[in-house]
Amino acid sequence: MIKISGISKWYSSFQVLTDCSTEVAKGEVVVVCGPSGSGKSTLIKCVNGLEPFQQGTITVDGVSVGDPKTDLPKLRARIGMVFQNFELFPHMTVTQNLTLAQTKVLGRGREEALAKGMALLERVGLKAHAAKFPGNLSGGQQQRVAIARALCMDPIAMLFDEPTSALDPEMINEVLDVMVQLAQEGMTMMVVTHEMGFARRVADRVIFMDAGKIVEDTSKSEFFGTPRSERAQLFLSKILGH
C-alpha cells in the first residue's frame, strides 16, 4: 500500500532524513516512534507530499508521490491525515469542517456529504456537537472530529502525526479508543506516537527512528522483547521506565 524507498531530505544543508526505507501493507498498522527531532513527523508528511523530499521514491497504492506529473490533490484526497494540533478550520462549524472537502474535492452533493459526516460524527460519539465551532470543543473532542473529517473522504490509508501529543492526559484515551477501533476494522495506518500502550495493543510493526534514520523496523513482539539497537533500548527504558 505505502512503499517508502531510500528517502533523503535536506533543509538547505541540514539533512533531516537519511535513506529511509519501509513498507506498510494493506490493513497493517505501523507505529513510528523515536526521540523528538528524529524525523518521524517529517517522514510521515513526505508520504502524502506535504513535505517535499530530494532523494528516493514513495508510492501510495502504486502512485508515485514525488513525481511532478502526479496529481497530488487527487492522491491526498485518498489518504487521511490527522495532525498533532487537530487543525480543524476554526471559522467553520463541525458540520462544515466535515463536508467541505467532500463537496469541493469529491463532488458529493450537500445531502450525501452531510449524511456521511453525521454518520462518522456519531461514530466518534460527537453527534450532539455538530453545530458547534471547534473552539468550543475540548482538545480530545476536536481530535475526534479531525479523525471523522479524514474518514469522510473514504481513505485507503490513514496517517497520524502525534495525534495525542497536544492533549491533556485525561483526553488521550478517548482519541486512542477511536484509533484502536479503526485499526481493528482493518484500516491501513501509519502512526507517529509515543503511546507505547497503543503500539502494544494494535501495532503490527514498530519503526524506531533516530537522527533521521530508521534504526529498527521490526515486529511488535520483537521490538518490545529485545530491541537490537542500543539507541532503541535506551529510548524504551526512558519512556517505559515509570
Partner: peptide
C-alpha cells in the same frame, strides 16, 4: 498546519486559499 490540513484533504491551492 491549517494549510497542511487543507492540502491533506485534497484541496488544491485555490481551494485552500479560498476556503
Amino acid at each position: 498546519g491549517q494549510v497542511w490540513a487543507g492540502y491533506a484533504l485534497g484541496l488544491n491551492y485555490w481551494q485552500s486559499m479560498g476556503h
